[in-house]
Design a binder for these strands. Sequence first.
DNA 1: CTCAATTTGTTCGTATGTATG
DNA 2: ACATACATACGAACAAATTGA
Lengths: 262, 262
Amino acid sequence: MRNKQTFNYDRSRIPLYLQVASVMRQRIESERWKQGEKISTIEELETEFGVARVTIRQAIEILREEGLLDARQGRGTFVSGRPKDKHWFNLANDLESVVSSIKNNVIRIVHIEENAEAPSLEENEGRPASGYILLRSVQFSDGEPFVVVNLHLARDIFVRDRKRFTRQPALPRILEMRDIALAHAFQTVTIGVADPETSELLEIGLGEPTADCRLVLVDDAGVALYVAKYNYHRNSFALRRDLLPRPKAAKAARARKKSKSR
Amino acid sequence: MRNKQTFNYDRSRIPLYLQVASVMRQRIESERWKQGEKISTIEELETEFGVARVTIRQAIEILREEGLLDARQGRGTFVSGRPKDKHWFNLANDLESVVSSIKNNVIRIVHIEENAEAPSLEENEGRPASGYILLRSVQFSDGEPFVVVNLHLARDIFVRDRKRFTRQPALPRILEMRDIALAHAFQTVTIGVADPETSELLEIGLGEPTADCRLVLVDDAGVALYVAKYNYHRNSFALRRDLLPRPKAAKAARARKKSKSR
DNA sequence: CTCAATTTGTTCGTATGTATG
DNA sequence: ACATACATACGAACAAATTGA
C-alpha cells in the first residue's frame, strides 16, 4: 500500500522537506500561524503531512534559518517572524496607473539588441512593426530586484529618444508621444517559471514560479509597437480590483428600496 | 571557481536534473527549440549547464516521459512535442462574465461546515455577517480538477436555497436574488503554494504554485456576504484584458488626424 | 521537590535518490 | 556501466528541557 506521501512525492519530485517547508512558510505568511504563536507539535505535523519526524525537522530547520520559526526543546516551536516584507507591486488596472506607478522606478538595462527578431504575436495582437529593438531590464524596489522586463519596441519609436529609452521605463515615454494613438493595451497574466537568466536577475532559484505578464500596445493602425514580457518575483506581485463597475449602482439603488435587512 | 550552475543550485536546493529539465521544457514551450528539430548534443549541454553527463540524461529522460523529447542513439535528440495544451481558464473581468463562465461547471462539494468561524476581512472589505457557512468544493473541466474553492457564505443567504448552494456554484444563485444589492466585488490575485489539502484535490505536488484568487462580495449595507478563496491550478489560470477603455477612443481619433505613418 | 507527561533534540540502521567522474 | 560520495526519507529508540500536578 502506498501512503499519502509517496503519493504526493510521486507527483512532484521536489524533496519532501522543501515541500513541507514551503507549506509552512505560507501558513506563516498568511497568518494562519500567527506571530509568537506555538505551532503544532512535531508529532502532529508528522501525522498531518504523513512524513517522518526527521523530515518535519528538516523543514523547521529551513524556516529557522529564515528566521520564521524558533524551536525550544521541551516547550514547542514558535513563530518568530514573518517573511520579509513584500513590497507588493500592485498590478494596475488601467494604463494610466501602470504608468504612474512605474514612472520613477529604478531600472537597470542588462541587454540591448538593435536588430532584434520580431516578437511572435497572437491572433488579435495586431501586425508587427517594420523593425524592433530588444531591451532587457531589471527593476528594483528597495534595492531588491522584483521584475525582469523583456521588451520588443518598434525601432522607429526607439530612435526618437534613444537616450531615455535606455535609461528609464519605456511606457511613460510612449504615452507622452502625442502623435501616437493607442487602440489597445492587451495584458495577459499567467504563472511561469524562472529560466536561468531570469533566476539570475531576480535572484531566485531556477524553476521557481514567477508572475508572467505580457503587455502588447497596438496603435490605431493595428501595429504592435510595444510587446513586453514582465517576469515578476512571486512575492512582489498582486492584482486587486473591484469587479463591480458604476452601472451596478443603479441596480443597487433600485434594490435598496425593497429590502434593508441583514 | 564556481560556475553559474553551482551558483543556482546553491540557491534553490531543488535537484539539479529537475532544474535542467525545467529549463529545457521552457525552451520547447517557447519554441526556442522547435518541433522536430535536433537539439544540442549531450556534450554541448553538459558544457552549457556545467553538469555531468548523467544529469543531462536524467533531465532528458524526464522530458521523454512527458513526450517532449525523443533521443536516438547515434543520431541525436529531437523535439517530439510541445507541453500538453493547457485549457486556460480565462479569469473574467467583470462579475457577469465570471458568472456565465462558471454557471454550468461541474462541482464537487468536499466539505460543509454549518457553523464556521467568520472569515478574516481586510480594512475595506466590509463587516462580517452574523454567521457563516463554510463550503469547500472542487471544480472540474474535462474531468480534471482545476480549482479548489473555499467559500464563507453568509448563513442567511445559504438557508434560502440550501439545496442549490450544496450542488452548484454559489455565485450565479446569489446574483439571481433580486433583493440583494451588491456594492463591491473585490478581487485579489496572488501566487500561492498548494497545501496538503489543495495538493490532494488538485492532484498536484505539495508546495507547487497556484493562482490564489480572493473574491469578496459586499452588499450595500456593508456586509461581506461572500468571502471566497479560489486556488487555481497554475496551468489553468490566465487573465486577459484590454487596459485601454473606451474613453481612449477619443484621444485615438484626435491623434489619427495628425500622423498615419508606420 | 519529585514525578510524569509533553515536547524537541539526537542518533542509528536501512533504503533509495542524486551527482560526479 | 561502475564505483564513489553525499542527500533524502523512513522508523524507531533514547536523551534533554519544560511544564504542571
